[in-house]
């Protein structure tokens, strides 16, 4: 039953993504690419690309998009409900305790403890994305001779623009998209 599997996968992603949008990335990678084999590395990056350029939370965007790819419009709706439901339940429980005791010290301590692990996990998903962008795949080891030189240049320019001129993600996407459309069409 594909709808049930979709629901459960995205429920799990919603339940364990602590710390906002990017925290969902490693879970999406583990669950959708490796465990279920529903999407490829390439599609994973495309989802992220589209999410950066559209409004709304990235986890919701990813759920709607992959749900649609896997099982049509109903799949998109079910995946989106699945990823949202844990929030709806847990936030109301936390809100209840918060309004009752005005104190969430332990919960906030747990979230603080999660933060360094979440950074490491996003770094791990980031490595997959970086390798795929540079080599077309993320299997280890990579052959340095196969590196995409245009990609390396784009990557370096993007980092420079963000660090030096505080370019926003959407500006980076527009610049690399237009440059890619032109340069790759002529080489």
């Amino acid at each position: 039953m594909i709808y049930l599997e979709l629901f459960l996968s995205f429920f799990q992603i919603g339940l364990f993504s602590f710390g906002g949008g990017y925290a969902a990335l490693p879970l999406i990678e583990q669950e959708l690419i490796h465990a279920q084999g529903w999407i490829t590395n390439q599609q994973f990056i495309d989802i992220l690309t589209l999410s950066e350029m559209t409004p709304g939370p990235i986890a919701i965007n990813a759920a709607t998009f992959s749900g649609n790819q896997i099982a049509g419009i109903a799949g998109g709706i079910i995946a989106t409900i699945g990823v949202t439901l844990p929030s709806v339940i847990i936030v109301q429980i936390l809100a209840y305790f918060y309004f009752k005791y005005q104190n969430l010290t332990i919960v906030q301590g747990v979230v603080q403890g999660l933060r360094p692990a979440v950074v490491a996990l996003i770094a791990s998903a980031g490595l997959t994305i970086f390798l795929t962008a540079m080599f077309g795949h993320s299997d280890w080891p990579v052959d340095i001779a196969n590196i995409n030189l245009v990609s390396i240049v784009f990557f370096s320019v993007a980092i420079f623009l963000m660090r030096k001129y505080k370019a926003s993600p959407i500006q980076v996407m527009l610049i690399t998209g237009v440059a890619g459309g032109i340069i790759y069409s002529f080489i």
């Binding site: 495309d46 992220l48 998903a125 784009f154």
Partner: peptide, 13 residues
């Protein structure tokens, strides 16, 4: 275009 944006997304992450 998407190939170009891949490098951009990698940089953002």
């Amino acid at each position: 275009v998407l190939l170009g944006m891949q490098a951009g997304v990698a940089a953002i992450i």
